[in-house]
Design a protein around this nucleic acid. Structure first.
Lengths: 221, 221
DNA sequence: TGAGTAATCGACTAACCACTTGATTAATTG
DNA sequence: CAATTAATCAAGTGGTTAGTCGATTACTCA
């Protein structure tokens, strides 16, 4: 084998792996699966794609080795194929945030418009949570909470938020989080809470970023 | 702005950044630029592409924010736009090595055929170098050596290797390295040295991996 | 100022990719 | 076994992209 052949083949592999991340919808799928296993139907619903198209994208991801699927009755459930995929996604995001200025503007514009409050960072949350100064609310669907959440967080899926308003102590600030820095659930939660006079802020990050910072997650409840 | 709009826009940015890595030739360019600044002509030569095509790829990388160029007389010199790009490339490589089995086979087949010796890891090299047991040889072109090399390494560009055979002490094993785990220069160096009876092995990695392991590089000489 | 070199641009081609629609397969439940 | 639901497959279409070739621009040096 010649040196050029070897390099071509090796870089071809790298490029194929990168191409799997090269479609917005596939990135969204990976972002979702980073929270845990999920069936095709549910992925299609969250991403707003047709079943056929979702399935197609999942095939692409699978043949690139990024996800694996298993049959479970009528459903086929997919999950990320390993820690290196999560790590790769995190690096891609860090790269984009560092190099693409529009991304920061986009984030600021959207979150400014929706919740109108500064997000809180993981470091700050950790410090204040240790001192028992905040109530941490996980607004993701229950199943995602169960598969791993921040220690001390209570599960109040966004659609049930109004029913749980009474549980909020006006003296204690609330910190809401969802799937990560690009998930919109917590922004809507914060907006709702603030319009009712609760001192609420959004965490910039989710379980993925929390555990990437070396902090432990809690399972079940 | 709607939640869906926001997500579409954000994931679109991620996908565009990933797509920039989505061509084998562009990955090779990034691999090269990870060693330091380089003019278009020289990139075209190493990668075996036409000038026009190389320039085109560099435009793509530049408009994705991964590289920056500056004019220097007749030349335009490009370099990686920041540490996050290097980090992203490293994560992509780790992902591919973890998830794509063929990559490991390819590496084993090629290096087995060319140099026929086990590569040495960074940890092992560090331990043995501390004890002064090995001679470390940097076989990259001189300019790359100057822009950063392993401490204690001597520069013997591959094409001058034969002229420096006398400097090798038969009692001291030689470790050769070049640009990284996918660079073929050191494999050829090892093959030449071994055919002349020198106990030579290839380092699995280059300056990039060395400094990613938290170890310092030396500059100039 | 004119010759020479490095890089870019523009036009074109062939290959590839995302997505849609409609049909098909696989498993479950009455 | 028939009906239902989840997922996949097949074919077709419009849009994008890597690469080539030839022309043009940007700069240097005699």
């Amino acid at each position: 084998m010649e040196g050029r052949e070897f390099k071509d083949a090796a870089f071809e592999h790298f490029a194929r792996a990168a191409s799997a991340f090269g479609s917005p919808k596939r990135v969204e799928i990976i972002d979702l699966l980073a929270q845990g296993e999920r069936a095709v139907e549910s992925i299609a619903e969250v991403t707003g794609m047709s079943m056929a198209n979702t399935s197609r994208h999942l095939q692409v991801l699978r043949s690139a080795g990024l996800v694996v699927g298993r049959r479970d009755g009528l459903h086929v459930r997919y999950r990320l194929a390993g820690e290196s995929v999560r790590e790769g996604y995190r690096a891609l995001r860090a790269l984009a945030e560092d190099r693409i200025a529009e991304l920061g503007q986009l984030k600021a514009a959207f979150f400014g418009e929706v919740d109108g409050a500064e997000a809180i960072g993981i470091d700050e949350l950790m410090a204040r949570a240790d001192r028992g100064e905040v109530m941490i609310v996980d607004v993701r669907p229950r199943l995602e909470y169960d598969s791993g959440h921040l220690p001390g967080a209570v599960s109040i899926p966004l659609e049930h938020l109004n029913a749980h308003l009474a549980e909020m102590d006006p003296e204690t600030p609330v910190v809401a989080y969802c799937r990560g820095p690009y998930c919109v659930l917590s922004a809507h939660a914060v907006s709702q809470l603030r319009s009712r006079g609760v001192d609420a802020r959004r965490l910039d990050g989710g379980p993925l970023e929390w555990s990437a910072a070396g902090l432990p997650l809690a399972a079940q409840a």
